[in-house]
Simulated assay, not measured.
Amino acid sequence: MSITRRHSSSVVGVATLALLLTSCAESESGTPTTSLPDSGSVSTSSTQSSGDIPIEEPLDVTHLLDQPCTALTDEDLADLSLADGELSDRTISQAAESCIWKRSNDSRSHVSLIVMTENSDGLEDIRDQNQDAELYEEIEIGGYPALHTSRWDDRDSGRCDLWVGVNDSEVAYFYVTLQEVPDASKPCDFGDKVGEAVIANLTS
């Protein structure tokens, strides 16, 4: 698997995460929320909940801070119809870089990963910051607590935000945007598949 690394001349705080991630795609309105939204209704999942799932085996994701593209194997990329990952050309975290994998059959469709270290209480902070988000679902990814949550619910537009609590202070954040591909109608399902693959690699 080849990885293209690009360097940024500036370090951007977590407050600009949404703006910078969406710059990787064409005019996207679905953005992650890392602070308390102003308004919106809460949508919760009735079949799965991660609120009471403890992180019994915290994962060491230190290597993903500067090598996020190693989170998926060549086999994963083939199974998910993704091209080789590329590091973002902008630093969107004070401690980590992000990786973008484009769909091999539609370069406008992609999924990105970044390990968020800015929230000292990990996924619990993401919960607190997004209680009033339009999209809010507690789920489970590979035995770890996770959320689908974002200020606006843009699933009908092929976008989804997935946050997975990998330890008590760090969160693996996945941003999915799908266009002309079959999975576009269920972007969160596709994000979950990517998350499951990453967690499986981290626990193997």
Rank of each mutant, 00 (worst) to 15 (best):
V181G: 04
D89Q: 08
G142A: 04
E26A: 13
R159V: 13
E75Y: 02
Y144T: 03
Q179P: 01
T47G: 01
E118Q: 13
S29N: 05
D161W: 14
A197F: 07
S8T: 08
G191A: 09
K186V: 04
K102G: 00
C99D: 06
E140F: 00
Q129P: 00
V12K: 11
V164N: 08
S120G: 01
S157G: 02
E56D: 08
G158Q: 12
G143R: 04
T4Q: 09
V111T: 10
A18M: 08
Y136S: 02
L82G: 00
S109E: 09
N201Y: 11
D168N: 15
T47E: 02
S45N: 09
W163R: 05
P187S: 14
K193A: 07
D161A: 14
T31P: 00
Y136V: 02
A96M: 01
N130E: 08
S27W: 12
Q48D: 01
H110W: 12
T62Q: 06
L36H: 12
S81P: 00
R103V: 03
L72P: 02
A184H: 08
R159H: 11
S23E: 14
L59V: 02
V176L: 14
T16W: 10
P145E: 04
I3L: 12
R155M: 11
L147K: 04
L21C: 06
M116G: 01
L147F: 03
W163T: 01
S27C: 05
I139S: 00
L202T: 04
A197C: 03
Y173P: 00
Q179T: 14
L80E: 08
E138Y: 05
L87E: 15
C160Q: 13
A200F: 03
C69M: 11
D38I: 11
Q67L: 08
V176P: 12
L113G: 06
D121L: 09
G158M: 12
S43M: 07
E26L: 14
S39K: 14
W163N: 06
S49Q: 05
C99N: 10
V194W: 11
G142N: 03
L19I: 08
Y136T: 02
A96P: 00
S41W: 10
I53Q: 05
L36A: 12
C69V: 11
V164Y: 07
S29A: 06
D76I: 10
Y136G: 00
T47Y: 03
P58A: 01
A95T: 05
A18H: 08
S49G: 09
T177W: 12
S112T: 15
V61I: 10
P182L: 15
S109N: 09
Y144C: 03
F190P: 01
S120F: 10
G158P: 06
W101D: 03
T4C: 02
E134F: 07
S45K: 04
S120I: 12
T34H: 11
M116P: 00
S49L: 02
S81W: 09
D52K: 06
G85Q: 11
I92C: 06
T34L: 14
N105Q: 13
G143Q: 04
L64F: 07
R6Y: 12
L19D: 13
Y173S: 13
L17W: 11
E56Y: 03
H148R: 13
S169Y: 11
S157A: 07
